Computed example of a mutant assay.
Amino acid sequence: MPQLNPNPWFHIMLLTWFTFSFLIQPKLLSFTPTNTPLNKNTPTKPTPWTWPWT
């Protein structure tokens, strides 16, 4: 059963994991978000919808 042999796939998984961890992730984390979230005061109770047929 070749799928149980981890010999070639373990190295591929490690190479992929290290590539993501050391090359791609720092580049992605260096970006600053353009829209910073704001704390908005939302009303506690919304206004009810008036249906035209009632």
Rank of each mutant, 00 (worst) to 15 (best):
L15F: 12
T19E: 06
P37K: 05
W17L: 14
Q3Y: 05
T36Y: 06
T32Y: 10
T19R: 04
W17D: 06
I12P: 01
T44N: 07
W53L: 15
K27Q: 07
T32V: 04
K40E: 12
T47L: 14
T19M: 01
T42I: 14
P37M: 04
Q3C: 02
W9S: 11
P48R: 13
N41G: 09
T50P: 10
M1E: 13
W49V: 13
P37F: 00
T50Y: 04
H11T: 14
T36L: 09
W49A: 07
P8Y: 04
F22H: 08
F31C: 08
F22Y: 11
N5R: 04
P8W: 07
S30H: 13
I12N: 06
L38D: 00
F22C: 08
P26T: 03
L15G: 15
P33G: 05
F10C: 08
H11S: 14
F18H: 03
L15S: 12
F31N: 02
Q25W: 05
L15T: 14
P48I: 04
H11E: 14
P43A: 08
F18Y: 08
I24M: 03
W17N: 07
P52C: 01
W9G: 08
P8V: 02
K27L: 03
I24H: 01
I12C: 06
P46M: 03
P6A: 03
S21P: 00
L28G: 01
W51R: 12
T44C: 04
F20E: 06
W49H: 04
T16E: 09
L29F: 09
K40P: 02
P6Y: 08
L15K: 09
L38V: 12
F10V: 12
T19L: 13
K45V: 13
Q3T: 01
L38P: 00
P26N: 06
T42W: 07
P8Q: 03
P26H: 00
N41M: 10
K40F: 10
F20H: 00
F20A: 03
T42K: 07
W51D: 07
N35F: 12
T36V: 04
T36M: 04
L14S: 13
T16F: 10
N39Q: 12
F20P: 02
M1Q: 15
L23M: 09
K45I: 09
P26G: 00
W51L: 14
T16N: 12
F10T: 13
W53F: 14
F18Q: 10
I24W: 04
N5Q: 09
P43K: 08
S30E: 15
F18D: 10
K40L: 15
T54E: 00
F20N: 06
T36F: 08
N35A: 02
S30G: 13
Q25S: 08
Q25C: 02
F31L: 10
W9H: 03
L14C: 13
W17A: 15
P6N: 06
N41T: 15
P52M: 00
F22P: 02
F22Q: 05
W53N: 14
F22R: 03
T50K: 14
K40C: 10
F10L: 15
P2N: 06
F10P: 01
T44I: 09
I12W: 02
T16Q: 10
L14W: 11
N5M: 02
P43V: 05
P33Q: 05
W53G: 07
F22D: 01
N39I: 08
N35R: 07
F10M: 11
N7S: 12
T19P: 05
